[in-house]
Design a protein around this nucleic acid. Structure first.
Length: 90
DNA sequence: ACTGAGCGC
């Protein structure tokens, strides 16, 4: 399950994100989007968790949680294209 | 390129 984490602090890094989510379950991959020019965090990232139960638990526990003085927002990322009707691929 | 809505290369 892919997770989208936003409202992160600019000092938040990928390893911090991985460590945070591994507390609630297995994390296959985690990445914080970083600006190419400034090498600073853009304030959001992605976490992939193979176990859906742990993923949902991580969402419930980490969504709205205060990290680095800010309340982070955790939700499902890049929802599966179930609705191909609304996804136009030309 | 130094900040605050957003979806990765």
């Amino acid at each position: 399950m892919n997770l989208y984490v936003s409202n992160l602090g600019f000092n938040f890094q990928t390893e911090e994100l991985a460590t945070l989510f591994m507390e609630y379950g297995a994390v296959s991959s985690a990445k914080v989007i970083v600006d190419k020019f400034t090498n600073r965090s853009k304030g959001f990232g992605f976490v992939e968790m193979p176990n859906q139960q742990e993923a949902e638990k991580a969402i419930n526990e980490l969504n709205g949680r205060e990290v680095d003085g800010r309340s982070i927002n955790v939700s499902e990322a890049r929802p599966p294209r179930e609705n191909t009707r609304y996804s136009n691929r030309y």
